[in-house]
């Protein structure tokens, strides 16, 4: 199948999903749309690197490209410095079980918005760890930070999320 044809099909079929991947990394909607378009351009120029491994492989490849495009954008904004500022705020400890119980009872839309409201660096680490399946070591490599810093930001993302859920449940 021709590259442009395949990408057009993917745009129509998986466009919403790929845009949501960008939104998970980039809070601003307009910027996320730019990342989405840049991701498609990047996919086209790198088409020769794509190997069709059956249904779903193009979608996965494009999702990876979208995440990569967003990460490059975030790196230019130097999220590490932003993270340093946030790290100074103390947070409560959260148990995994209670958080899992709370997450199960929240609407997807609300949960999605909570993640969007996380600070960029925490959201980035959370996305990479939870949705991309990277280890903290890999995240540290990709973001140019220490492994312990990645783990700490993940911990803070979790704590922030728990706080938001607590407020949500009290409403």
């Amino acid at each position: 199948m021709d590259g442009i044809e395949a990408l057009e099909k993917a745009y129509k079929k998986d466009g919403a999903y790929l845009l949501s991947v960008c939104r998970r990394y980039v809070r601003d909607a307009d910027t996320a749309r730019d990342m989405f378009q840049d991701g498609f351009v990047s996919a086209y120029t790198n088409w020769s690197k794509f190997t069709d491994r059956g249904p779903g492989s193009l979608k996965a490849w494009l999702a990876r490209i979208m995440a990569n495009t967003c990460l490059m954008y975030l790196r230019k904004r130097d999220p590490v410095r932003e993270a340093d500022e946030i790290d100074t705020v103390p947070l409560k400890a959260v148990s995994d079980d209670s958080l899992a119980g709370s997450i199960a009872g929240i609407k997807d839309e609300d949960l999605y918005n909570m993640i969007l409201d996380l600070p960029d660096v925490e959201r980035t680490v959370l996305n990479m760890f939870v949705f991309e399946g990277f280890s903290h070591k890999d995240i540290a490599h990709l973001l140019g930070i220490k492994e312990s810093a990645s783990a700490m930001r993940f911990y803070r993302a979790k704590a922030h999320l728990a706080e938001m859920i607590e407020k949500y449940e009290k409403r």
């Binding site: 949501s20 995994d96 997450i103 997807d108 999605y112 939870v130 949705f131």
Partner: peptide, 22 residues
């Protein structure tokens, strides 16, 4: 067996796509 909160988060939101590209 209880699921980890990260698994639950991934299951709920991995394919959540509220916005259609313009």
């Amino acid at each position: 067996m209880k699921k980890d909160w990260t698994d639950l988060l991934r299951e709920k939101l991995e394919n959540y796509a509220p916005q259609v590209p313009e």
